[in-house]
Design a binder for these strands. Structure first.
Length: 156
DNA sequence: GCCAACGTTGGC
DNA sequence: GCCAACGTTGGC
């Protein structure tokens, strides 16, 4: 059982979009970074992830989601009309992967980036490392519990 | 295989 | 809107 953090821009696809998605489930697609893709491929069904809003007024964690389908080819890469199109990825040799995630619990209140930075126990988080730009990253069990404590939730 | 140039990310 | 940090590209 592993824990993750998924970054997204709320204007593009935020918690409000996820809530309205069929079965509150969505493919996590459009990842075009090898390191992030490799993390996606490591995900197993049942893994949990924080849903993080970036590039917005108040960046932070807004929900907990669960991986409900493990990595499979990201077909948006095959579609010339998609903004995620990648001519080097083909159905025969898919370069990119996606997983499906399902909303487990929206947090009552956002846990802001500032609050995360204030926690000594979290200073090793990948998210908080200077210059970090990964959109998919691992979270340790210790970090997960600490953040759940902050959120007043106990999903582990 | 090096590395400069460029584009993107994302907090502030 | 700024800018630092980083990944990618492409010429050599």
């Amino acid at each position: 059982m592993n824990y993750w953090l998924l970054k997204t821009e709320p204007e593009t696809f935020g918690i409000e979009h996820l809530k309205k998605s069929p079965k509150q489930t969505t493919p996590w697609e459009g990842v075009r970074n090898y390191q992030a893709r490799n993390f996606i491929r490591e995900m197993a069904e049942g893994d949990l992830a924080f849903f993080y809003h970036s590039s917005c007024k108040v960046p932070g964690i807004v929900a907990i989601v669960e991986v409900v389908k493990k990595a499979y080819p990201d077909a948006t890469a095959f579609d010339p009309d998609s903004s995620y199109y990648d001519s080097k990825s083909t159905p025969e040799k898919p370069r990119w992967s996606r997983v499906d995630v399902k909303l487990v619990e929206p947090l009552k209140e956002i846990i802001t980036l500032t609050e995360l930075r204030e926690r000594t126990k979290l200073k090793e988080m990948v998210l908080l490392k200077p210059g970090n730009r990964l959109s998919v990253m691992p979270v340790t069990k210790g970090q997960w519990s600490e953040i759940c404590k902050m959120a007043g939730t106990e999903i582990q």
